[in-house]
């Protein structure tokens, strides 16, 4: 479903990704590990289409379509979801109205009518419960004053609401305490199915203990230096990258 071929990316004239190749099949979970500065977050931002991440050469196909020619919002509407490492604050915008608006943007692209307020509330209650999110969080402004854990849960809630086919998680485990990590991981596991693929970017084994990856890739200097199964993650956890 996702195929990255010879991808070269520069950020502020610095070469970050070098001839990166990666193939992800339907329903697979791939973990990307690697030291700081190895290009882990860059791959996430490039796939999502962040401005200033310049693709010098290479190809990316998502579900048979050229991903790189699309605007960020089109990538989202086509099923790509990036869970941010540092979710952005939107002062003055209540979480509930924001969530409803992004849900409606996706419905509109599928030529569906906007969701009914009552129905939306019902779904929101259901999905929030799964993540242990109190409903009053939705009357606060998006991510503003949220704790690290609340921000990350809000990201997972959004991925649940938008029903994406490819989920990229950029260090979703950072900032979560053990309990929050467990709740979040359980919610993510519920999202796993045969149609949906995951890229999980992480430094640590602990998230991968809850969400078992099919493949683990080790990044160094902007490309994959080693690929293995989940035992590779345990080895790295014990021995480090060197």
């Amino acid at each position: 479903m996702l195929e990255i071929k010879n991808l070269n990316v520069t950020v502020e004239e610095k070469k970050i990704l070098k001839n990166l190749n990666l193939k992800i099949g339907k329903g697979e979970v791939h973990a990307i590990m690697g030291p700081n500065g190895s290009g882990k977050s860059t791959i996430a931002h490039t796939l999502a289409g962040k401005p200033n991440y310049n693709v010098e050469s290479g190809e990316v196909n998502l579900n048979g379509e050229d991903l790189l020619s699309k605007d960020p919002f089109e990538r989202s509407l086509n099923g790509l979801f990036l869970a941010f490492q540092y979710p952005i604050e939107l002062p003055g915008v209540t979480n509930a109205s924001y969530l409803k608006q992004i849900v409606n943007a996706h419905r509109k692209s599928r030529k569906e009518t906007p969701i009914d307020a009552g129905e939306f509330l019902k779904i929101l209650k259901e999905k929030s419960k799964l993540l242990d999110i109190p409903m009053d969080m939705h009357s606060r402004f998006v991510n503003a004053g949220f704790s690290g854990g609340e921000k990350k849960k809000n990201e997972v809630l959004q991925m649940d609401l938008l029903n994406p086919s490819l989920i990229i998680m950029d260090e979703t485990d950072s900032g979560l305490d053990v309990d929050a990590l467990k709740t979040t991981a359980e919610a993510i596991n519920k999202l796993r199915n045969d149609e949906r693929s995951f890229i999980i970017i992480t430094h640590y084994l602990r998230l991968l203990e809850y969400i078992e990856p099919d493949y683990v890739h080790v990044f160094q200097n902007g490309s994959v230096i080693e690929t293995g199964d989940k035992s590779l993650a345990s080895r790295i956890d014990q021995e480090g990258y060197s």
Binding site: P72, S76, A105
Partner: peptide, 19 residues
């Protein structure tokens, strides 16, 4: 902020108007 909203499916103008 704009990129965050666009990543969730809002086009540039929708994102700006939300903010």
């Amino acid at each position: 902020q704009l990129f965050y909203c666009m990543q969730r499916g809002l086009d540039a103008e929708e994102a700006q108007s939300l903010i």
